[in-house]
């Protein structure tokens, strides 16, 4: 058992040594594998970020109900109380016209313009929060009902684009999955083909080893370990590329997320993602080697 383990460690190190003797060729292969793995991983991260962003807004389904100008504050409060009892409504809140104006006044872009006004042009506004479980159809019905009231000027529901964004993200996510599957297959073929060439180059060694009584497992092992290293190095480099890409995007991305009121913290390469990239590399490397070895090694029988 210990001898077998020793032999495996020796094989693994020998394979690494063989790769290091051809640094350029190895780097090229590892680079191609890394790019093919990094691409879907980083796209997936971006979409995940988008989904987090969209998700953090999903609970914002409040209606803004603008009352007709001139409606008194008392009427507005009565209406708010009435609507709060309404079926399908969770709660209501009144934004007084003066409070809204004061809020605008704090923004330097509007401040001076507002000073020029002699009276408050803003109406009182109700914020109506529907039940979180309300279906889209119920929301539409509620919106129509609110709009039909005589005191109400305008009802706004700004969450439709969120649903569209979520749908777009779903399409993107599916697309990335397809791309990932194709790229992973490409990695398997790259490793397989590289090892096929390696097998051809070492044909004499394989023949002689078989003549000297080497088992198929003995002959196979060095090539499997080469595939293992290609996968491991490719996965590690892919991870590095993803992290580097995120670092480059960090500034603009943080600004974007801030604009949309989403926290940047926690966005990035999670241990799960890292494991997935490394694991995909390893599996692809070993699978490619296994395919090449299975197809091409058994074809080599010693000729004397």
């Amino acid at each position: 058992m210990a001898a077998l383990l020793t032999r495996h460690v020796q094989n693994a190190l020998a394979a690494l040594g063989q790769l290091s003797r051809q640094p350029v060729a190895t780097l090229l292969t590892v680079g191609v594998i890394a790019i093919a793995l990094a691409l879907p991983a980083s796209l997936q991260l971006l979409v995940q970020g988008g989904q987090r962003m969209a998700g953090s807004w999903a609970d914002i389904r409040d209606f803004s109900v603008y009352l007709k100008p001139g409606t008194s504050l008392g009427v507005a409060r009565d209406l708010a109380r009435t609507l709060a009892e309404h079926k399908g409504v969770q709660e209501t809140r009144v934004i007084e016209a003066d409070a809204a104006l004061a809020e605008f006044g704090r923004d330097p872009a509007f401040g001076d313009a507002l000073k020029a006004l002699r009276q408050n042009p803003l109406p009182h506004t109700l914020v109506v929060r529907p039940d979180p479980e309300a279906a889209p159809a119920e929301l539409d019905a509620l919106k129509a009902e609110l709009g039909a009231r005589p005191e109400v000027d305008l009802v706004q529901l700004d969450t439709q684009w969120l649903a569209r964004l979520a749908a777009i993200l779903d399409v993107l996510r599916r697309g990335i999955w397809i791309a990932a599957v194709l790229l992973v297959a490409a990695v398997v073929f790259i490793v397989g083909n590289t090892i096929r060439l390696d097998i051809q180059n070492r044909r004499q060694e394989i023949e002689v080893s078989k003549l000297l009584g080497a088992t198929d497992a003995f002959v196979r092992r060095p090539f499997l370990y080469i595939g293992f290293w290609y996968g491991a190095l490719g996965g590690a480099l892919a991870l590095l590329l993803v992290v580097a890409g995120l670092l480059l995007l960090r500034g603009p991305l943080a600004r974007l997320l801030q604009l949309y009121g989403t926290d940047f913290s926690g966005f990035g390469v999670t241990p799960g993602t890292a494991l997935a990239v490394l694991g995909a590399g390893l599996v692809c490397g070993c699978a490619g080697a296994w395919l090449a070895v299975g197809r091409h090694l058994s074809a080599i029988e010693p000729r004397v």
Binding site: Q204, E205, E207, V208, K210, L211, L212, G213, A214, T215, D216, F218, V304
Partner: peptide
């Protein structure tokens, strides 16, 4: 393989590995 390990072989072209 196990059988061949009990047989020594010498070839005209010696089949040594040059690397």
């Amino acid at each position: 393989p196990a059988y061949r390990r009990q047989v020594g072989m010498v070839f005209q072209d010696h089949k040594l590995l040059d690397d």
